[in-house]
Structure formats: structure tokens, C-alpha cells
């Protein structure tokens, strides 16, 4: 996973509540067998007409937002389906940071698996960031998001922060607990033998 340290770039303000993962990446793109290539389908139904032509009014079809690396949005961002295709699509488009008042649980986890930083800030702060003319800078070490005329500090769990800063392989980390896992399995076999799936 690519580490996340600092990021300076264009922030696209898609300010609405409950942006769901169906909206981020609709079902017809979930038949893919790979993680890459979903960026052009990000927000597909807001971005293209039924014939596949770009809708010129939509934010991500306008300059400078075509090259946005930060997305500003409303509360409960990423609600709905567990599809990791949602963060894959954001990442493939170029978005490395989503700033919203709150996030849905599974999407939030999926961001960290993909080197995307989800930042929680109050809606009023996000409105100020959206009003900035130039690019925004996100500094994970300092836990700040700032523009030319305003800046805000955000909270993040230390373990989450470390994961992103180091671009940690989470599976490798859990593998370091192999002895604990083996001890647990041995104990469970003795204490709860009915849990063994042996009937097949």
C-alpha cells in the first residue's frame, strides 16, 4: 500500500449527505476481476448521460476538478454496500483524501486498506475549505487540512495514522501474531469443539 504523508491538490466539493457506494461506483462495474481501471466510472451516473457522454455541469467534468486529489462531502459518506470498488474507483481517479463530517463504517475501513485518508471535520469547516480558491494541503503527521485562508486540525486514531504513514501491510502485521492465533485455535478446539467445520 502506498503511504500517505502529505498531499497538496485540488479539492472537489461534492457537498451532499449520504453519498452511497452505489453512487460512487454503480453495480455494472463490479464484475471486474482487478482493482484498477475504475476511475473513469467514478460517480458514473452523475458524470455521464445514458449514452455515455460527459455531463458538462457535473463537478468532476469541469476544470480544475478533473484532476482533483481531495474530495469534500457531506455526512455519512460511503454508506451502503461494502464494495471496495468504491475506494478503488476514488483512488484510480486520483482522490487520496476524502473530507466529510462523518463516514460509514465499512467504507471508512476500506479507505485505510487502500492508502486513502478519510478526514472527519465539522460541516462548517468543510464549507470554509470548499470556499478556498486554490489547492488544499493535507498533512497527516500534523493532522491538518488547510488552504490559503483557513486551516483545521483533525483527529485520527494513532494506529490508523501509523498504518497510513508507513503504508503498512496489514496482513503482515497480523501474521506477526501467528503464535497467538495458533494458541487461540488450540484453546477453542478444546473449549468449543462444535465450532470445527468437519462435516464436509
Amino acid at each position: 500500500m502506498q503511504p500517505f504523508t502529505t498531499l497538496t491538490g485540488t479539492a472537489a466539493p461534492l457537498i451532499r449527505a449520504n453519498v452511497d457506494t452505489d453512487l460512487i461506483i454503480p453495480k455494472q462495474f463490479l464484475t471486474t476481476l482487478v482493482r484498477s481501471g475504475l476511475g473513469r466510472h467514478l460517480f458514473h451516473e452523475l458524470r455521464y448521460d445514458p449514452a455515455g457522454q460527459e455531463l458538462p455541469d457535473f463537478l468532476l467534468n469541469r476544470e480544475p476538478y478533473r484532476k482533483a486529489t481531495i474530495l469534500l462531502s457531506g455526512p455519512n459518506f460511503g454508506c451502503g454496500s461494502s464494495r471496495e470498488h468504491a475506494p478503488w474507483a476514488l483512488l484510480d481517479f486520483g482522490i487520496r483524501c476524502v473530507v466529510a463530517p462523518s463516514f460509514a463504517d465499512i467504507f471508512f475501513n476500506n479507505c485505510f486498506s487502500n492508502g486513502i485518508l478519510p478526514v472527519s471535520l465539522p460541516a462548517e469547516s468543510i464549507a470554509q475549505l470548499a470556499a478556498e480558491e486554490g489547492p488544499l494541503t493535507v498533512d497527516l503527521s500534523a493532522q491538518t487540512v488547510s488552504g490559503a485562508s483557513c486551516g483545521f486540525r483533525f483527529e485520527i486514531e494513532p494506529a490508523r495514522k501509523a498504518t497510513l504513514l508507513e503504508g503498512m501491510d496489514e496482513i503482515k502485521r497480523s501474521e506477526a501474531n501467528l503464535a497467538d492465533i495458533e494458541a487461540y485455535e488450540a484453546r477453542r478446539r478444546a473449549e468449543a469443539p462444535w465450532l470445527e467445520v468437519s462435516q464436509r
Partner: peptide, 21 residues
């Protein structure tokens, strides 16, 4: 019982565990 992303699917396949809060 809870839903997980594909990276977590891989994590469970490899380790039979998940880091959780």
C-alpha cells in the same frame, strides 16, 4: 456478523483474523 471489504476478505483468508476496534 458484519460486512467487510475485499482487502479484509484477503486478510481473513490469510490469517483467520481481523484487526478490529
Amino acid at each position: 456478523a458484519f460486512g467487510i471489504g475485499t482487502s479484509e476478505v484477503e486478510h481473513v483468508m490469510a490469517t483467520q483474523t481481523l484487526p478490529q476496534r
